[in-house]
């Protein structure tokens, strides 16, 4: 009978990575501990707060609840993988969070931005209810939700003004 290989491989922020790891290791620990991508944050560790949110094949997923074997062979995007047209530019969502004060301590912000990316990829012009639903798995302990709502609305507008839909997963990770 077959067991899952301990050689884990995936594409992380456009880069192919291979690791020898326990297949039940949390993706959160792989990202932060093994790959040094510490933009993804550790908080509740039970899937409630969204600080550890990443995209797997374009879908938002809590990396604290995802085991290595569940994301093997997939395309993983962390906050470090988002950028504007050039790698040294901010993504329009990141710009919007800066401009609208969509953060206070900033700890929840990477997760908020990742969830916003997933939301706007699916629904480029969400209404307030859809924004709340899309971000309901992300908690801001500073309770700065007013700024976050404005930031998501602004991000949607920015992307519309660029006359393009948000870049697809492949376009973003170039």
């Amino acid at each position: 009978m077959k067991t899952t290989n301990t050689t884990w491989q995936a594409t992380v922020n456009r880069e192919h990575r291979e690791l020898q790891i326990d297949p039940s290791r949390r993706l959160l620990d792989i990202i932060r501990g093994d790959l040094d991508l510490t933009g993804t944050k550790v908080s509740c560790e039970i899937g409630r707060c969204g600080a550890c949110m990443v995209l797997i094949d374009g879908e938002p997923v809590n990396s604290c609840l995802t085991m290595a074997y569940q994301c093997a062979g997939k395309e993983i995007t962390t906050i470090e993988g988002l950028h504007g047209e050039h790698e040294d530019q901010l993504h329009p969502i990141q710009e919007a969070f800066l401009e609208e004060g969509g953060f206070q301590c900033g700890y929840c912000t990477p997760g908020m931005i990742i969830s916003t990316k997933a939301l706007l990829d699916q629904n480029p012009l969400p209404n307030d209810h859809e924004i709340k639903e899309g971000l309901c798995g992300n908690l801001c302990r500073c309770t700065g939700y007013g700024g976050i709502m404005r930031a998501v609305q602004s991000a949607a507008t920015k992307c519309q003004q660029q006359d393009t839909q948000l870049p697809t997963q492949q376009q973003i990770i170039r």
Binding site: M1, T3, L19, Q20, I21, D22, P23, S24, M67
Partner: peptide
């Protein structure tokens, strides 16, 4: 390909099985 080893070994490693069908899973 450069295969790295996890720097932080899992304190409670586990074996993950991939049954092809119910019989294997039950076994």
């Amino acid at each position: 390909m450069n295969i790295e080893t996890s720097r932080i070994p899992d304190p409670f490693p586990c074996q993950v099985w991939e049954p092809a069908d119910m019989e294997e899973a039950m076994m």
